[in-house]
Amino acid sequence: MRAIDHHAWTNRWRGWHPAEKLLPAGSLLILTLMLPPLTTAPLVLAGMALATVRGAGVPLKALLSVLAAPAAFLLAGIPFLAVSVDFAEGVNLHLSAEGLRLALTTTVRALAAMSCLAFLILTTPLTDWIAPLRRIGVPAGVIELILLIYRLIFVFFERALTGHQAQTARLGYSRVDRSVRSLGLLAGNLFQRALEQARRLEIGLMARGYAGELRVLSPQWALSWPRLAMGLGLVGLIGAASDLLGRGLS
């Protein structure tokens, strides 16, 4: 999670208007879901991987590690889709062509869709989505909650990490039963600290005139039409190529 956040803040396309990234990636996601997957999905996957790694300069390793978890789930699912069980005469396992095709299309389609999402989360920090969310009318309370959670996750992550290190240093995780106990103590301690932190944060905010609303300046982006046009052009290209490939294959 920290790696994702790091790349989101430091990649080359960080300063772009979120729409310039959301519109092309969102359109590709829709294409992936609508067009025949065998021709579309590989193109989308390649396009998004290129955009993430070559374009935004996110290391390939980071992209792969984001895709690794869903990929593992997909691979685990392949046997269940490809193999059918027949109970007619005893137990028979069939490897049907239909099943294989289904497994393959589902897997590539899901991976391609994931690559669109991976592109978005690796190139755009969560906070850049706040202004768009506000514009489409998400209530202020929800947005404040998102912002506070995002900020405090890192504060508590740090506390949890140092607490864990301190416990490890005193052999708190040397045996299974001790590990369970130590983890329980750590969780209890973090909970208590969270409450204290909330109280002190309120003092700090009140000192700056907090009156129930967390308002801050929204970042200003200039929407670049050429970049947006290029992104959507890529989407058109992938759509057309997939259509051509589909005709060629059939």
Binding site: L126, T127, I130, L147, A207, L214, V216, L217, P219
Partner: peptide, 12 residues
């Protein structure tokens, strides 16, 4: 950390 709550320095 008791005082900073926003995601970026400028916003805070």
């Amino acid at each position: 950390d008791d005082q900073l709550f926003a995601a970026t320095v400028g916003q805070d």
